[in-house]
Amino acid sequence: MNGIGRFAASAATYGFLGLMAFLSIFPFIWMVLGATNSSIDIIKGKLLPGAAFATNVGNFFTLVNVPLVFWNSAKIAILATVLTLAVSSLAGYGFEMFRSRGRERVYRAMLLTLMIPFAALMIPLFVIMGKAGLINTHIAVVLPSIGSAFVIFYFRQSTKAFPSELRDAAKVDGLKEWQIFLFIYVPVMRSTYAAAFVIVFMTAWNNYLWPLIVLQTNETKTITLVISSLASAYYPDYGVVMVGTILATLPTLAVFFFMQRQFVQGMLGSVK
């Protein structure tokens, strides 16, 4: 290729990547700008910072019981994450460490549940929760997600890298199986836990359909549900909605930037 051709090709590459990067980031910029503008200006597509930020924040805090809504979201996300990691890492470890023909069959059958669409579960789940008297509770939101085939799979894959000498040595020292798991496996695998934490936390924080079904009063609703109902009002106040989306995105954005490596690692966990 001659010099001009090469220059044109690399200009096209940078142009294309630049455009894609811009389109990817733009909605975030627009969200931040939107929070400073009035609803009318947002809908008219104003692209400059406005002076309505304080008003929007004020309106958001009057319309929404922010501490409560945040507490609800955080409670669900943290509870779901801790329980999922505990139960599913235990199972991933169990499947990899104690192999038997029967367990392999169960494992394969379990992986098939990854294909079950949630839409096919939500009606029976709703009836189950109703019978258990758990409708409108946070525990009902968390319960169905704890036994996660995906997280079990991820932990089993990662456990293949766990040095079995450590386990043998611990056994010689007289540790019981649960002690080996708790005092040796968990600390050694902390980066696996970190990656799984990021994924499970994000999923739980952003979860929508199931909480929408189960949580029915304003006292139990999460930030995601609140934004959704603010935005579907007949005349939504977009300035207020923008403040809400920023607040809902900040925690996940923070997790992403502080734990970017674990984040990517967690996403890739399944293809190793």
Partner: peptide, 30 residues
Amino acid sequence: LFRTAIFLPCVSSLVAYSVLFKGMFATDGI
């Protein structure tokens, strides 16, 4: 930088970005 930028949408919640898109794609919108 490109990689982070193009990956960034994955961080947003499905509800939040849908709401943003609804505003951006309003008839007189941006």
